[in-house]
Design a protein around this nucleic acid. Sequence first.
DNA 1: GCTGGTAGTCAATCAGGTTGACCATCTTAG
DNA 2: CTAAGATGGTCAACCTGATTGACTACCAGC
Lengths: 153, 153
Amino acid sequence: MTRRRGEIPLLLAMTYRAMTEALHDRIAAEGREPLRPAHGYTFRLLLDHADVTSVDLADHLGVTKQAASKIVAELEGWGYVERRPHPTDGRARVLALTDKGHAYVRHADEMWAEIEDRWAAVIGAQRLDDIHHDLRAYVDEVAGGRAVLRPVW
Amino acid sequence: MTRRRGEIPLLLAMTYRAMTEALHDRIAAEGREPLRPAHGYTFRLLLDHADVTSVDLADHLGVTKQAASKIVAELEGWGYVERRPHPTDGRARVLALTDKGHAYVRHADEMWAEIEDRWAAVIGAQRLDDIHHDLRAYVDEVAGGRAVLRPVW
DNA sequence: GCTGGTAGTCAATCAGGTTGACCATCTTAG
DNA sequence: CTAAGATGGTCAACCTGATTGACTACCAGC
């Protein structure tokens, strides 16, 4: 045991920050709208689940529905997302990616691939797969799957 | 390659949040002052380096010196840290842990050990050591050691 | 012994969240 | 069928923790 106690969360934070900043820099260099991590996690949720509402998004991000609603309003204003009437619930709106949204997601995946590959080049692809597995294990098994996205500072 | 692109940062964020929240819950349960991650990273910096100033802290945390100064003021008010005159520089103050600060760090290390051990129980101690090593590798070699702590949301 | 740079503080402002109140709609018990 | 409670969404007020900008006091180098 050479690890120092409490150093793991610190390294998680630094790595998270460095990776998201790498993407952010590229987005900024392209002159794109100021997309933040929360926007990216929104896209991912919409890709994986059908009939997502603002409340669903709020749960996923770990913020209030008002905050989630604001994020959706931004994305809608920029043309990445649109709000459609919910098929069965008259109160609710269903969120969906527009063509621009889908195109961005494909582009972002390529940029993430490059960022992750730079890491894999140092530690090896197998180790990166291990990390993926082990992080998932903490979230699901130790934190009980109740884990939420928004970082606390 | 079964990994989905961009999922690694998402898992980093969720794990970071879940781990820090686990510690935060215990601190709150003890009725202690509302210490946040930034305070913990401050303690760690003071343990590792002598003659740390508020500006040094600001660099380390990735915030402005004004924000760092506010964090120091809180810690000083709670009795965890004190500001002493700098040995050679009349403008600067040197930050140092008080006895209470040192006692808390020891206590926090025990709590971190329990949290990390719960993870190690699922994935194995060797894998946790690997993760430590690999995160450090990203920060140092991919991000060029310029990595900063404060997460962006 | 000027001149430019640095540590720290004060004050104003901003961003991104929260809380609370409210309406419209859905759901369920009786 | 209906009354009562729960839920999705919006509006507005506020809070926290950051930033920017201006300023003072001190340091360092020519």
